[in-house]
């Protein structure tokens, strides 16, 4: 059973992040996927397209200005939730990505400055065969510099209770 203090964090939001969408970062992102779409990298081509400028691939929301230098993951969660999960036997190091749901409303262009705010939508625990799992649903709303909503993302982060016996078995 998850402690009540964890369940109480449903509805909690993170501080708003500002993300700059730079064309170099777009290019690097598209290159990492090996997606040669000229809308992401060819300025002349993109200008003649219906977008009129370089756009970001769906799934890229720029680079946060307030990037935490010590952060190893991209999911944004209230720090209180991470601490509480750790105490309940679900360390951050156990996290795996479960999946995502996007809704796209407007194109994101090179030069846009986005704001991103993440809210904890749901937390539920499930007993597995070798370990327990906690599913955290986080919703991020992205808006551009004109305060228009550009996209929403719902991420499922799965925290696992990696018990000591399990660890030993894996290391053996």
């Amino acid at each position: 059973m998850l402690p009540e203090e964890i369940k109480n964090l449903i509805g909690r939001s993170t501080p708003t992040k500002t993300c700059e969408v730079e064309k170099g970062a777009i290019r690097r992102f598209a290159n990492a996927v090996d997606d040669p779409n000229p809308l992401y990298c060819d300025e002349v081509y993109a200008q003649k397209s219906r977008y009129g400028s370089i756009i970001a691939p769906p799934g890229f929301f720029g680079w946060p200005k307030e990037q935490d230098r010590n952060s190893a993951i991209t999911i944004d969660t209230p720090p209180a939730l991470i601490t509480a999960l750790e105490q309940a036997g679900y360390p951050l190091s156990s996290v795996v990505d479960g999946g995502i749901e996007y809704e796209f409303f407007l194109p994101i262009r090179a030069g846009d400055v986005l704001t991103a705010k993440t809210t904890v939508l749901n937390i539920r625990e499930r007993a597995g065969s070798s370990m327990n799992l906690v599913f955290i649903i986080l919703e991020t709303v992205y808006a551009n510099q004109n305060s228009s909503r550009v996209a929403t993302a719902q991420v499922t982060a799965i925290f696992r209770s990696i018990n000591p016996q399990e660890k030993e078995r894996t290391n053996a």
């Binding site: 779409n37 691939p57 769906p58 799934g59 479960g98 999946g99 995502i100 796209f104």
Partner: peptide
């Protein structure tokens, strides 16, 4: 996820628009 987004955006072409996308690992 990004591979699948590339699959869909390639297929729909430049005048297509991706409205919703979801995937589970």
């Amino acid at each position: 996820r990004q591979w699948l987004i590339q699959l869909v955006t390639n297929w729909m072409g430049e005048r297509g628009t991706l409205e919703k996308f979801s995937c589970q690992y």
